[in-house]
């Protein structure tokens, strides 16, 4: 018999089977477009495609590609942890309510959905890795280890956001999450230019936010320059955010579903 904690995944899997084509093609074409325009197009201007000391000794394509890898995990996670989580406790889906009537516990509902989001982040990152490798942006086989960074980054964003979404009455605030949280993080976390270019105050803000850690981690794995001390620091930071998020999410789910 399927163990109870895995049972919520049946729902997400069956729903996914309906839309996998559009999801996978989006996960394939979006990085293709980004890498072609930013990596190759813009990259031909930045240092004329040459390696630059200011980019850590990389050419622009190799600098930006791992950052987009981390950004992909973040984007998938935020999209899933807002509208999807919110929808799952609303009448047209009823997903959480029906799980609740079964032997599945509230904590397992939360854990199941987070596991699914982590899996979606992994899938998107795997596709991205393949596309970026085809562009020649992957310099080291260590990049394969970066596949673990995808779900970890995904959870660091998904868990705290899900804690918020599950209790949200309306879905309007989610567009603010995209504009005021996701977009600035995506643009200023050392993704398109090094954080050393930021004013000092903003630089420390970037260090404090999760995406920068995910970007640094991915970059070192793509380039094969992973250093155990700095690297594990990033991992611990992301794991701590994800762990704290899961604890808060657990309480939020209980508050919303077990009244």
């Amino acid at each position: 018999m399927l163990p109870t904690p895995f049972r919520p995944l049946s729902y997400f899997w069956v729903s996914f089977r309906r839309t996998w084509m559009s999801t996978l093609s989006a996960s394939f074409f979006t990085p293709l477009l980004y890498l072609a325009s930013l990596g190759v197009g813009l990259g031909s201007l930045v240092g004329h495609g040459q390696r630059l000391a200011s980019l850590g000794g990389e050419d622009y394509l190799s600098f930006v590609a791992p950052a987009l890898f981390a950004g992909t995990a973040m984007q998938v996670a935020i999209g899933q942890a807002t509208y999807e989580v919110w929808g799952a406790c609303n009448p047209w889906s009823g997903a959480y309510r029906s799980m609740q009537a079964s032997p599945i516990s509230t904590g397992q509902i939360m854990a199941g959905h987070m596991a699914w989001i982590a899996a979606r982040a992994l899938l998107a990152c795997a596709l991205y890795l393949a596309v970026s490798a085809a562009f020649g942006a992957v310099k080291s086989p260590e990049a394969v280890a970066g596949l673990a960074v995808g779900p970890l980054t995904g959870l660091a964003f998904a868990a705290p956001l899900a804690a918020y979404s599950v209790r949200a009455r309306h879905d309007q605030p989610f567009s603010l999450v995209f504009r005021l949280l996701m977009l600035p993080l995506f643009l200023f976390s050392g993704t398109f230019f090094p954080v050393s270019q930021l004013p000092v105050g903003l630089r420390y803000l970037a260090y404090a936010l999760p995406l920068w850690h995910a970007v640094e981690l991915s970059r070192s794995l793509y380039a094969g320059t992973f250093e155990p001390l700095a690297g594990s620091g990033h991992v611990v930071y992301l794991a701590a955010v994800a762990g704290a998020g899961l604890l808060v999410a657990r309480r939020s789910y209980e508050a919303r579903l077990s009244r």
Partner: peptide, 19 residues
Amino acid sequence: LDLELSVSDNLYVYGRYFG
């Protein structure tokens, strides 16, 4: 019910919740 899923998928998924 999940309005987006088919009639039999609704039963299938729910059955899986019960293992």
